[in-house]
Design a protein around this nucleic acid. Sequence first.
DNA 1: ATGGTGGGTACCCCA
Length: 285
Amino acid sequence: MHPPLDAAGAGGQARCMTASLKIASWNINSVRLRIGLVGRFVDQHGPDVLCLQEIKCETGVFPVQAFRDMGLPHLVIAGQKGWHGVAIAARVPLEELPVPEFCRHGEARVAAARIGGEGGITIHNLYVPAGGDEPDRSANPKFDHKLDFVARMDAHYAAADTSRTVVTGDLNIAPGEHDVWSHKDLLNVVSHTPVETTALEALRQRGRFADLARVGRPATEKLYSWWSYRSADWTRNDRGRRLDHIWAGEALAPGFDPATFQIVRDARSWEKPSDHVPVVARLSL
DNA sequence: ATGGTGGGTACCCCA
C-alpha cells in the first residue's frame, strides 16, 4: 500500500484532512508563445496537475524551467515539431505510462501518467484530431481519422480497468445539445455531428466515466470551453462549444464535488489568448 | 453562401 496522495495544499494553502487533486486541462495553442498565460493561470488557480494540448513544439524545446518555476516540476512531454503535442505538468511525481495507440498516424496526441503508484490515479491527456471541415469520412480523410481515433478509444476503455482513471483533454467534440451555442445550426458542423457525439457518449458510458462538467448541474445549462478566433468579438454572441473535457472513472467520481468544476472563461479575454480556456476539477482521493 | 483569425513553418500546413 502507499500513503494517501498528499497533493492538497496547492498554492501554499493549509493541508486538508481529505487529500485531493486539482486537475486542469487547457489547449494552449503554442506553449512557448503563451508560457506567460500558463503562469498566470497556475498562479490564480493552483492546479496540482495541468494537462496541456497543442504545445506545438518538440519535447526538447519544451519550456521546462518555466514549469519548475511555477511549481509544476514533474513533466511528461510528448512533443513534435510544429503542431499537435501534449504534456502533463504536476506538483507531485509522475510516472510516465505507455500510451494506448489511439492515433493511427503516430502523432503526439496522447500522454499518460500515474500519480501515487499502484492504487494511484492514472491520467490520460488526449488531443483528439479536429477532423477537418467536411463531415464525411469517405470524402475527408481527417474526419475518418478522427472517427477512427474515437473508435480506438472506445475499444481501449471498454476493456480497461478505468475505475481510477481520469481522461481529459481537447476531445474536439461537443457532445450535448447545450455544449454548443446552437444545436440546430451545428448538426452538420464537425465537432457536433451525430456520428461524433453518439460515438463519444457511447464510449464514455462503456468506459464508465463521469463527465465532470455535467455532474450535478442542469443538462440545459450552456457550457463552452472554446470560441473561434474567426470572430471580431467572441463575447458578442457567445458562439462557443464545449470541446475540453474532464472525465473520472467510477472510483473517483463519488468523491467529486460539482462546485469545484470551473471553466475559466475569463482566460479567453487575456492578451493574445488561446481559443480554448482551461477547465478545472478537484477530485477527492 | 461566404469568410472570418491565429500559430508554426518555410513559401502553406493546420486549427
